[in-house]
Amino acid sequence: MIYQGKAWKFGDDVDTDAIIPARYLNTSDPKELAKHCMEDADPEFMQKMRVGDIIVADKNFGCGSSREHAPMAIKAAGIACVVAATFARIFYRNAFNTGLPILEAGEAAAEIKSGDELRIDTMTGRIENLTTGKTYQAKPIPPFMQELIDDGGLMAHISKKSKTS
């Protein structure tokens, strides 16, 4: 998939409480969760962002809780994909399982600024900063994760496996 949108830049260690505060976890409705996406990192984020925009962050994005509500909220908010220097382990898994495209790209994360226009090819991992003209290469998605994506997420992957076995 190719996504084009505006970057919103965040720093190191953006935790899942910042992505979706636990006070809103008394529902698992993605639309309700999306209203509070990134609220404790930037209270005005949802007013400022547009559907198709891209979150860019430094190291350890999504650290903390195992809540799948975090990638769900980001996806339901309309964020096209997340680029970070590194992702916390559980968030990384959850993003693939819920179908939120994520890319690890240290140099891109360090250089991209809020407001930059990006074009991202999630298949090749190529990240173009249309504002500065610079291009970056994300780490390739591991083949097993790619298989999950191709099957349409973990549950679809399991369904497919149970039918073929």
Binding site: S66, E68, N94, N97, G153, L154, M155
Partner: peptide
Amino acid sequence: GADSHTCTYGALGAFATGVGSTDLAAAMAT
């Protein structure tokens, strides 16, 4: 466990790790 502090049980000499709800659903099934 669909809770990040599932790693607590490592204190018993077990392998325990937190996962998301979808991973857990898959394990509940299979």
